[in-house]
C-alpha cells in the first residue's frame, strides 16, 4: 500500500517526462528558444509564462507571508486561548475552500476592485480591465495564507517555553521576544511553510485562470503600455490548461515539455523544504 504512493509519484513524473523531450528531438525546438523566447504560440518560447509564474509566486508571497506570520504570532503569543483556537479554525476552514470559489470571488470582486483603483489613478475608465498578475496575486495570497499560517503555528508552538521565559525575564517586551527570539528560532519551520506555499501558487490553475485574463502574448513586465503587472497575461499553468484541449503534434509536445518543467520546479521546491525540515532545531 505504501509502495503504491511512491509508485504513483514516479509514474506521474515518468508519463509526463517521457513525452516532454520530443519537443527538442522530433520538433527541433532548441532549449535556448524554449527558455528565452517570448513567443509561445509560434516558436514555443516560455519566457512570458515562466516570468509570469515567478512574479505571481513572488507577489503572492509578499502579500501572504506578513499576514500569515502575523496570524501565527497572534494565535500562539497574543490571543487568549479560546480566540487563538477560533482563528485557527477559521484559517483551517479557509484551507478547505475550493479554488473555483476563490476564482469567482476574484473575478467578481478583486478584478473590478483593482480596475477601479488603477483606472481612477490613471484618470481613464477604460485603462485596464483589472485582469493580470496583480489581481491574481491577491487571490493566491489568500489561498496560501492558511498553508503558511498553520505550518508557522506548528513551528512556533514547538519552541520550548524556557526560550520565551528567558527573553521576558531579561526585560524584553513581548514584541522584542517575538522578533528577536521566537521568529529566529522558528525560521526553518516558517521557511518550509513559505516554500510549500510557493509550490501551491505555482501549481494553482483554476483560480488564477479566472482572474488573469489569459493572453500569452503580453509580457508581464511591459513598460510600453504602462500596464506593469496589470495587463491580461498568462502563466505556465493557465496556458497549459488553455492549450491542451485542442493541441496536436508539436503543440502537444510543447505542452508536455512545459508541464514537465512545471513539475520539476515544484518537485525542487518540495525538496528544498524537506532539506529545511532536517535543519529544524525544535520540533
Amino acid at each position: 500500500m505504501a509502495a503504491i504512493v511512491i509508485a504513483i509519484l514516479v509514474f506521474i513524473y515518468y508519463t509526463i517526462g517521457s513525452r516532454s523531450y520530443q519537443l527538442f528531438t522530433q520538433d527541433h525546438v532548441s532549449l535556448t528558444t524554449f527558455f528565452t523566447s517570448k513567443d509561445w504560440e509560434n516558436s514555443y518560447g516560455t519566457l512570458v509564462l515562466t516570468v509570469g509564474s515567478l512574479l505571481l509566486v513572488a507577489f503572492g508571497l509578499i502579500l501572504a507571508v506578513p499576514l500569515s506570520l502575523g496570524a501565527a504570532l497572534f494565535i500562539t503569543e497574543v490571543a487568549p486561548p479560546w480566540m487563538g483556537r477560533f482563528l485557527r479554525s477559521v484559517v483551517e476552514l479557509f484551507l478547505g475552500i475550493p479554488s473555483v470559489i476563490f476564482g469567482l470571488v476574484g473575478l467578481l470582486v478583486v478584478v473590478p476592485f483593482v480596475a477601479n483603483i488603477i483606472n481612477s489613478i490613471a484618470g481613464n475608465p477604460y485603462f485596464t480591465t483589472g485582469n493580470g498578475i496583480f489581481a491574481a496575486a491577491i487571490v493566491v495570497a489568500f489561498m496560501v495564507l492558511p498553508t503558511i499560517t498553520t505550518i508557522s503555528v506548528d513551528s512556533l508552538v514547538a519552541i520550548p517555553r524556557e526560550l520565551r521565559e528567558g527573553s521576558l525575564a531579561l526585560g524584553a517586551t513581548r514584541w522584542q521576544t517575538m522578533t528577536k527570539t521566537l521568529l529566529p528560532a522558528a525560521t526553518p519551520g516558517i521557511l518550509t511553510g513559505v516554500i510549500l506555499g510557493a509550490a501551491r501558487i505555482l501549481g494553482e490553475t483554476i483560480a488564477v485562470g479566472l482572474v488573469i485574463g489569459g493572453s500569452p502574448r503580453v509580457f508581464p513586465i511591459d513598460f510600453i503600455h504602462g500596464k506593469l503587472f496589470i495587463g491580461s497575461t498568462s502563466v505556465m499553468t493557465t496556458q497549459i490548461f488553455h492549450d491542451f484541449a485542442d493541441a496536436t503534434g508539436s503543440d502537444l509536445d510543447a505542452i508536455w515539455a512545459l508541464s514537465f518543467l512545471l513539475i520539476v520546479i515544484s518537485g525542487l521546491l518540495v525538496f528544498a523544504s524537506r532539506a529545511l525540515v532536517s535543519r529544524r532545531v525544535y520540533r
Binding site: 504513483i8 509519484l9 509514474f11 490548461f241 518540495v270 525538496f271
Partner: peptide, 28 residues
C-alpha cells in the same frame, strides 16, 4: 530510509499541480 522516501513522495504528490495529475489521469 523507506519512511523518508515515502514522506518525500507524499509531500511531492500533494504539491504536484492538480492539473498535471489530471493529465496523468487523462493518459492512464
Amino acid at each position: 530510509r523507506f519512511l523518508r522516501v515515502l514522506r518525500f513522495a507524499t509531500e511531492t504528490l500533494t504539491s504536484t499541480p492538480t492539473l498535471i495529475v489530471g493529465f496523468f489521469g487523462f493518459i492512464v
